[in-house]
Amino acid sequence: MNDKSNTLLFVRDLTIYYITDDGVVKAVNGISFDLERGETLGLVGETGAGKTTAALGLMRLIPDPPGKIISGEIVVNGKNILQATKHELHGYRGKEVSMIFQDPMTALNPILTVGDQIAEVIRLHEKMSKEQAYKKASDMLELVGIPSERMSEYPHQFSGGMKQRVVIAIALACNPQLLIADEPTTALDVTIQAQVLALMRELRQKYDTSMIMITHDLGVVTEICDKVAIMYAGQIVESGNLEDIYENTKHPYTKGLFGSLPSLSSKVNRLSPIHGLMPDPANLPDGCAFHPRCPNKMPECETRCSVNTEIESGHFVRCLLYE
């Protein structure tokens, strides 16, 4: 395409708060990343790290109130999404960027047929007659491995894995340039997980779609991602390509994540988990958000948060140890 840098998505200092009566929940605190066409980014973190909020922010789907995008920039195809009008957003969602939601059980409308729900997104974005849209919807269903005769069935007649396939079919129906997959496999059992991942990989190759894969499963990341960003308390603490993160782990939190994974190759008596719990995003500690749990804590960590430091080309760490 004519974009010289080949960058599809450009996020800078995205900050999203939930402003409630009980205080401000700082869900996302200034995250920045780029994504090129055809590239897949894994967004990894514990529950509550702000991954889903960040994804919803990219879709401009933060429930407002209480959610508010405080500052930052989201540029997709050269357009700043945060300044888009309502009308522009209708053309953006589902067409340029679409999202696979976490829980397939609830993501489909129970009273509309599966065919209706796939055809809906097609009719919104493509100039097609009703018949053509339903034809395409049935093709999409076949594409994700569901016989098209089941078009006229309702979501409750499908199993969880099949519902997730339908959700994927909806997300891919208009060939989006960016696909955000929010823990697409978490609600599924392991065999179905593998099938869904294989399917997504296949479809990504077919359509050259960029992807953001949100997960807390480091195994899923190695299967499908090119780049990884580790999130903690609403910040990206470490990011880089697979090798940077898996072989050349720098941030104490990332090390902790790997330390808490059992390994088949090396024998350890005990796993070394990260002690403590994720801080309450409504009440983040001063300085580095990770310092209360950090094994390499320095006195300075309590007062000052590190800036993002590029230690190798493309490998960023947000930790005072590497500043």
Binding site: K95, D103, A107, I170
Partner: peptide, 11 residues
């Protein structure tokens, strides 16, 4: 969630 899904479709 399915309402969010339909928003995500651009409806």
């Amino acid at each position: 969630d399915y309402i969010r899904t339909s928003r995500a479709k651009g409806q």
